Simulated assay, not measured.
Amino acid sequence: MVYAKKVETEKEYEDAVKIRRKVFVEEQDVPLHLELDEYDADAVHFVAYDGDTPFGAGRIREIEPGIGKVERVCILPDYRGKKLGNLMMQCMEDYSISAEITKLKLNAQSQAILFYEKRNYTITSPEFLEAGIPHRAMEKQI
């Protein structure tokens, strides 16, 4: 069974971090100290599984009352192109609604903008570099 969920145990958190390391640190060369940052302790984390195998991760931080920031969304290469990013985002958006977050912001890697636009996020900034990777800020009312 393929599913995404809010992290509730230390093992689930470790699974999410493992995915983030593989995608951002190993695949995209983001320095570890930037990937695992000071916001991890306060963020709400999410992980996606195929049975017992983790394949996706993400986190949300409430940056202002009612405004959340979606961060660190990633899917392992073997699971990409199968609409599983949508599963991850839907789980995170459902959580946000239950937490009374009414607006989500994110910094999308430029190559992922179309994915977020299909989920009704709109671009709110020119392109900028984050960890050496081109991004654009986006947001969505939920």
Rank of each mutant, 00 (worst) to 15 (best):
M1G: 13
M1R: 08
V2N: 07
Y3A: 03
K6F: 06
V7N: 01
E8Q: 14
T9S: 14
E14I: 08
A16M: 12
I19A: 10
R21T: 13
V25S: 02
Q28M: 13
Q28V: 06
V30N: 00
L32W: 11
L32E: 14
E38T: 08
Y39R: 11
Y39T: 11
D40Q: 09
H45L: 10
F46P: 05
V47Y: 00
V47C: 09
A48K: 01
G51I: 03
T53L: 09
T53K: 15
T53E: 14
T53C: 08
G56H: 02
G58H: 09
R59W: 04
I60E: 06
E62Q: 14
P65T: 11
P65K: 15
G66H: 03
K69F: 04
V73Q: 00
C74Q: 06
I75W: 04
L76W: 05
P77T: 05
Y79P: 00
K82E: 08
K83N: 13
G85I: 01
G85V: 05
G85L: 03
N86T: 14
L87V: 12
M88Y: 02
M92S: 05
E100D: 15
T102L: 13
T102I: 15
L104F: 07
K105D: 07
A108F: 00
I113W: 00
F115G: 04
Y116Q: 10
R119A: 11
N120F: 10
Y121D: 03
T122E: 13
T122F: 12
I123L: 07
P126A: 15
A131F: 07
H135P: 07
A137N: 10
M138D: 00
